[in-house]
Amino acid sequence: MSILVTGARGKVGRAVIGRLHSAGLTVRAASADPAALTVPDGIEVAELALGRPEGFGAALRGVRQVFLYPEPAGIHELVKAAEAAGVEHVVLLSSSSVLGPDAENDPLAGHSLQVERALACSGLTCTFLRPDAFASNSLGWARPISRSMPIRLAYPEAHIAPIHPEDIADIAVEALTGTSLTGRSVTLTGPESLSFREQLAVLAETLGREIPVEKISRAEAERQMADYMPGPMIYSLLNLWEAADRGPAAIADTTHTLLGRPARTFRQWARENAAAFIQR
């Protein structure tokens, strides 16, 4: 049995590949640009570009399970190719945003929701993993922190429960190799609710220096984010953070509840990634 891992250049995809390979399982790493992949020796690579369905058959040949990143382009053709190839199970890295109001029109949720719906209408057994905010989203602060600049936020008290990407990988591997998650949809978070200000305090303690936090207006935040993000995404994110400003984030499933092992904390992620916040 071969397991196809899409998004093989991503943090979670690479971690899933490494765990499956270490367990002695046959893994095929897929990317739109397979020549750019760096994978352990013995792992087959395949080209899979969702906008080019003519390559789906070769990528899926001999595959029984797929770890799938959510990309709606070509998803219906991919589903048909997977069914024709005899794929039995798809584990989708979706998003908790699909559970929000008006998710189909939300730029944060739309991609994942389209893929979930296409899979749900197929004859494939599917597991939907719906992580909330990644701890690694904090890397968005790396540049100003490394330059001793203040972090300017419209909603510094907004709470999230950031999940360590390695925990997502652990849960994905369990979904691919065990049966406890087969056919389920699970919302994933980290083990604790932290405001943005509290996350920055953890980073400051880890780095051994102060990180100033400056509260700004929503309009200022919109102008700041417009340098690197499209308008609809900015609007959606700010709405999300405004809602999260009202209190602690809910804790959903973690590696503790699903796998019986401690969940990695944001503090652990900060220690592991401290170098990213130091200017070189």
Rank of each mutant, 00 (worst) to 15 (best):
N137F: 12
N137Y: 11
S138N: 13
S138P: 10
L139N: 05
L139C: 01
L139R: 10
G140S: 14
W141A: 15
W141V: 11
W141Q: 12
A142F: 09
A142W: 09
R143S: 15
R143H: 15
P144H: 06
I145R: 03
I145P: 10
I145N: 05
S146P: 14
S146Y: 13
S146H: 14
R147Y: 10
S148D: 14
S148E: 12
M149L: 15
M149Y: 08
P150W: 05
P150H: 07
P150D: 04
I151H: 06
I151G: 13
R152P: 06
R152K: 11
L153E: 03
A154I: 11
A154Y: 05
P156E: 06
E157C: 09
E157S: 12
E157I: 02
I160C: 10
I160P: 00
I160A: 06
A161F: 10
P162H: 05
P162E: 11
I163N: 02
I163F: 08
I163L: 09
I163V: 09
H164M: 00
H164I: 04
H164E: 01
P165Y: 05
P165H: 06
P165E: 03
E166F: 06
E166S: 08
E166P: 10
E166Q: 03
E166K: 04
D167E: 05
D167F: 04
D167A: 06
D167H: 04
I168A: 07
A169I: 00
D170I: 13
D170T: 14
I171T: 08
I171K: 06
A172E: 11
A172S: 14
V173I: 14
V173N: 14
V173C: 15
E174C: 15
E174I: 11
A175R: 11
L176K: 13
T177N: 08
T177D: 10
G178N: 12
G178A: 13
G178W: 14
G178D: 10
L181Q: 12
T182R: 11
G183M: 10
R184Y: 04
V186Q: 08
T187P: 03
T187K: 09
L188E: 02
L188M: 02
T189C: 12
T189S: 15
T189R: 12
G190K: 10
G190S: 08
G190H: 09
E192D: 13
E192S: 14
S193V: 13
L194N: 10
L194S: 09
L194E: 13
L194K: 09
L194Q: 10
S195N: 00
S195F: 00
S195R: 01
S195Q: 03
S195E: 01
F196M: 09
F196A: 06
R197P: 06
E198M: 00
Q199G: 03
Q199W: 02
L200G: 03
L200E: 01
A201N: 02
A201D: 01
A201S: 00
V202A: 09
V202S: 07
L203F: 02
L203Y: 07
A204I: 05
A204S: 06
A204P: 02
E205L: 01
L207P: 03
L207E: 00
L207M: 07
L207V: 03
G208C: 08
G208P: 10
R209T: 04
